[in-house]
Write a protein that binds this DNA or RNA. Structure first.
Length: 294
DNA sequence: GTAGGGTTAG
């Protein structure tokens, strides 16, 4: 298998990219593998140049591979990714979604919405189940209730109203906009809730200052035999801390130990916050952090 | 043919 230590210039140029063969499939796989191995923008640009020379870039699936790397790689920039996207003659739906996702994570979430509208106008594609979580994420970052509600309407009209990923995004969106009533209405209508549904609603209640409702929901989760995880416990601990409910906080500490909830840094920090209220927790927190990181 | 959601405080 080739590596980036092999100069890309040594790769033979495919004479006719329009005629796929077993040999060309192997060549494509080599290029995809090189994309995955890129460790700098310079490497990625080398692969990009090679794909332009061989014509591989003009295959929409191959172009999507390069574009995804240009948006996800820690060394890349959205500016370069955007240039890559603009060169793709006919971006497929996956590539459009990747562009919308990239902007939803960025400091320009409005570009996510703008490019979604471009996709509707300029491409033959309609949004799919992957498009909406990115759009709702952008609306959440924009804190625009009206924008998110438009997406919610589209979700229902597009028959994705049962998709738990999309509905969980909507719970988080409505709670972030401060509309806990709408968030809860989405939550109760999910027919097959998963742990993220519960976590989204519990943390939504905590962020909205409804600590009792958060703890009540945790008891409901228990009654429904849903297995909580570290994120659930961060929400519940946060509610106890803010409510200064030491008794429930102690119970939660035991619950985490007895149920083998996997500790991570965020949960350790949430326990530390609680430990300011219960100083006896401090030695335990230090021990836990040492176990994880030392 | 590739993919999507939730977490602490400061």
């Amino acid at each position: 298998m080739g590596t980036l230590s092999t100069p890309l210039i040594s790769l033979p140029i495919q004479a006719n990219p329009e005629a796929p063969t077993v040999k060309s499939d192997n060549r494509n796989r080599l290029v995809f593998s090189l994309i995955e191995q890129c460790t700098s923008l310079r490497h990625l640009k080398q692969v990009h140049a090679h794909m332009l020379r061989t014509g591989l870039f003009f295959d929409s699936y191959s172009a999507s591979k390069l574009f995804t790397a240009s948006t996800l790689s820690p060394f890349s920039s959205l500016e370069y990714a955007r240039k890559v996207f603009d060169e793709i003659p006919e971006p497929n739906l996956y590539t459009w979604n990747t562009l919308i996702r990239a902007y939803s994570w960025s400091t320009e979430p409005s570009e996510s919405v703008r490019n979604f509208l471009r996709m509707l106008c300029e491409s033959p594609y309609f949004p799919n189940k992957f498009t909406f979580p990115f759009l709702i994420k952008a609306a959440t970052k924009l804190s625009r209730l009206g924008v998110g509600q438009v997406f919610h309407g589209l979700v229902v009209k597009s028959s994705f109203g049962d998709d738990v990923f999309i509905l969980n995004s909507l719970i988080h969106f409505y709670a972030s906009c401060g509309d806990l009533d709408l968030a809860y209405r989405v939550f109760v209508r999910i027919s097959e809730k998963d742990v993220v549904s519960w976590n989204s609603m519990i943390s939504g209640f905590v962020q909205g200052g409804c600590f009792d409702k958060a703890l009540e929901l945790f008891r409901e989760l228990e009654a429904e035999n849903v297995k909580p995880n570290a994120v659930t416990m961060v929400g519940v601990l946060s509610a106890c801390t803010k409510k200064k409910d030491l008794e429930f906080g102690r119970w939660i500490r035991l619950y985490i130990e007895q149920n083998g909830i996997k500790m991570d840094l965020t949960l350790s920090n949430a326990m530390l916050d609680m430990s300011y209220l219960i100083m006896t927790w401090l030695p335990m927190w230090v021990t836990l952090v040492c176990k994880i990181y030392v």
